[in-house]
């Protein structure tokens, strides 16, 4: 989040927005990546098209990079004045990075606090989570967010799940020839192993689920002519 800043004179890009996605009401907002966009609506639309093509979501936040303050423990030691960064008083969201190894996100939003400004919010983040690898704070008023009424959630996020033909489970095509080769021990081992990234099967998004309905649909389309 503290990437090298391009020279503002030569940077022709729209500002960068960090995108936070909530998978379901009970889960925290998580940093999923960034988009470049000219205005809040543009940022949210781009975020939806880029980060919610399949995975479950009920809400998206986009926060422009210049509204985000982040620091590592080392940076707080070398530049302690970051804890005095001035700004508006109000509600601030706190995010932390707790592991270097997580594959699908790197910052979870874990608390909302009342703070006198971004520096104060950072100070509270540090006090609450002294063991974090990075702290991230931004004001609630800085968030561009999708509406949380049922209609918006439905139209923004349901199609990613409901178009069953876009799900791999819809197509149940497994070769019996391959099964025979495996039983006879003539398939090289490594092609039979499911690839994993940090405990997740790569082929299945962590939030994808094989429902019984999908399996039945797959069985229907398998009827041979």
């Amino acid at each position: 989040m503290t990437q090298p800043q391009p020279d503002p004179q030569s940077d022709t890009q729209w500002p960068r927005w960090e995108v936070f996605k909530q998978d379901s009401e009970k889960r925290p907002y998580q940093a999923v990546g960034s988009v470049h966009a000219g205005d809040p609506d543009h940022a949210l639309l781009t975020a939806r098209n880029v980060f919610v093509r399949r995975p479950a979501a009920v809400s998206l936040w986009a926060v422009r990079e210049d509204h985000i303050l982040s620091a590592t423990p080392e940076e707080v030691v070398s530049h302690p004045d970051v804890l005095d960064t001035p700004g508006e008083a109000g509600a601030y969201h706190i995010g932390v990075k707790k592991s270097h190894k997580r594959s699908m996100t790197f910052v979870d939003l874990i608390a909302t606090v009342k703070a006198g400004g971004p520096g104060d919010a950072l100070r509270q983040a540090q006090a609450q989570h002294p063991d974090a690898l990075t702290w991230v704070v931004f004001a609630d008023v800085a968030i561009a967010r999708t509406d949380d009424d049922a209609e918006t959630v439905e139209s923004w996020f349901a199609p990613a799940r409901d178009k069953t033909y876009k799900q791999q489970q819809y197509y149940g095509v497994i070769g019996k020839h391959v099964g025979e080769l495996k039983r006879e021990g003539r398939m090289p081992r490594r092609t039979t192993q499911e690839p994993h990234v940090a405990g997740h099967k790569v082929y299945d998004h962590p939030h994808d689920q094989t429902s019984e309905m999908l399996r039945q649909r797959a069985a229907e389309v398998e009827v041979k002519p």
């Binding site: 990546g33 093509r53 876009k166 791999q168 197509y171 790569v202 082929y203 994808d208």
Partner: peptide, 15 residues
Amino acid sequence: RAMVRICSEETFHHK
């Protein structure tokens, strides 16, 4: 992260 998301969609393309 981009690759993990892409792979789950590519599996639909493949199948």
